[in-house]
Design a protein around this nucleic acid. Sequence first.
DNA 1: TTTCAACACTCAAACGTTTGCGCAAAATAG
DNA 2: CTATTTTGCGCAAACGTTTGAGTGTTGAAA
Lengths: 342, 342
Amino acid sequence: MRPKLTLKQIARELDVSISTVSRALRDSSEIGEETRKKIKAFAKFYNYKPNNIALSLKNRKTKTIGIIIPEIVHYFFTTVISGVEKVANEKGYNVIVCLSNNSFDKEVLNMELLANGSTDGFIMSMAKETLQKEDYHHFTEVINQGMPLVLFDRVIDEIHCDKVIIDDVIGAKKAVQYLLDTGAQKIGLVSTVDYVSVGKLRTRGYLEILRENNLEVDQNLILKIEDMDSSEAEIKDFINKNEVDAVFAVNEHFAIHAIKAIQEKGLKVPEDVSVIGFTNGELSKRFIPSLTTVSQHGERMGGEAAKLLIDKLERKPDEGESYKTVIVETSLIERNSTKSLI
Amino acid sequence: MRPKLTLKQIARELDVSISTVSRALRDSSEIGEETRKKIKAFAKFYNYKPNNIALSLKNRKTKTIGIIIPEIVHYFFTTVISGVEKVANEKGYNVIVCLSNNSFDKEVLNMELLANGSTDGFIMSMAKETLQKEDYHHFTEVINQGMPLVLFDRVIDEIHCDKVIIDDVIGAKKAVQYLLDTGAQKIGLVSTVDYVSVGKLRTRGYLEILRENNLEVDQNLILKIEDMDSSEAEIKDFINKNEVDAVFAVNEHFAIHAIKAIQEKGLKVPEDVSVIGFTNGELSKRFIPSLTTVSQHGERMGGEAAKLLIDKLERKPDEGESYKTVIVETSLIERNSTKSLI
DNA sequence: TTTCAACACTCAAACGTTTGCGCAAAATAG
DNA sequence: CTATTTTGCGCAAACGTTTGAGTGTTGAAA
């Protein structure tokens, strides 16, 4: 076992000072050609690589960005990570991923941990519990310390920082309009409780587009799910109780449960009932029938978030603060769970 | 904006030396009760948190472990990450996730990056390209530097380190035996090319169990897929050309393509043809029919890997080297893509 | 011959910690 | 009242870098 080579060892070996080695490796003109060559050859031969920790300490920046997400076993989040990774790496940044498991405490813990020197900034989607508690002190804390923060997907207005979101309302409107266009009259909505912002917004889109089409809203046709674990049963119940000719679900799981329930009721998708989901995951693509869905373009969101963060990180401190909100457009992907346009 | 508090600032503020502050915060008996209380109160009030980077540099360990995986948009890997995270966090370790995107170069780059001070050890699954190239110098490199390495899932014998694998052969045997037990006679195999070790091993399980049952192997019933992109077409072709009454696929994507192809051929799953997959992902659970599958228990694998790594990290250097291979058992999860036992 | 710039390099401080050692003052023992 | 121990704290080195300032040679201009 041969431990890592340091400047000090090179210096001792070649009988020069540490600073000479450092400068030689950075091609400083202060060092004589011969010495420089000798040092570089030695370093190359023994595969010298500077110690990142020491560099971070010296430069007071780590060149790594921290991502904290509620859960990783979730297609959308993984695509976002991919997107962040891609642009971060291009710009010489590293990525650390931490999970909050939707727990407020773990979110706080992870942020504190990463804030203590591990990262230069954060890209986050908030834990469900945090949204419920409405306790955002840990966010303002890191912002006050001068660490940039970019929020994505689950976002709230109270926190002043850069944000990347999708046009949930518009996306929902597109979806519901599409259902109307393909002949649906009674459209059920399967959403989440309102403190999950995306659920709220998509619900709003649903309501707005009905209003725009001068249709009445039937509250019986709106299901708001609190607990993921009981979602399957609730959806089944909802489908059995109500006569609908289309369902708009705010995520793919709900959409699939809806399809199952519809089929078990003896109806066909899309002939009798059309179904549209949100989030373009594996499930949507592979399911039979494959799901017509509002695609969130997670990778693009991740990329945008990374760009915003790195911009902030590399901006001079004197340039005034200003926070941007980037909206990544959704698009409707037509597959086989809906009737096609005439 | 208020930058992070340091020992130095506390010391200046309270008019004591830095070392006194450090000791007071660690409850050293060398510091007088009064001073200690004062310092602790001050630190608490202003929410002092030691800088991790400085600590890492001083202690020459980072308390973080690096995970490098081929891709994150993949259910199995995310479950592994979850598992690692869980036990790592319990033991006070952090987790960094990096992606190789199945590229050899990026794998090497990421390892070098993380090896230069960012992590104390690695948990990895190898990139496909690395397996093809059979170039493992970057692994031996970090091992030589004294960094522990745990390989999981995609593993090869040439690298001497701890490993966590599943009993691919046994898992495959279980699956095929189950198909035989439910009355299948002609069982097709949809596998990957042999340099992907899991493909090879699962293929071996298939062959072994046929032999054990004194059945002949028909090479026409074995499909080895090289390119994921063309897998759908290849599988369709394979199903159309061959008469089978069961299919064993080495992952869930292949299984689902097989089901689609079978249905498009006018046959029913599982009445006419049974299908078993490998990996218990979202897709397997939600697909209709839901997939009977060999579950890999990714979370358990991640947990075991983390335990092995942390064990190594916290062992005294004098204790001799010895490498373990932990085998995580697979289990067959019976769902609706196979006939049930009589 | 003196002056001084250019060259090639070294010293030392800094980033934020921890910790062995030293040192003065206070407390105890003789 | 001196001698020794204890108490309470500070100094400085170390982890691996970078970098401004300093230093001792050259060689050329004045």
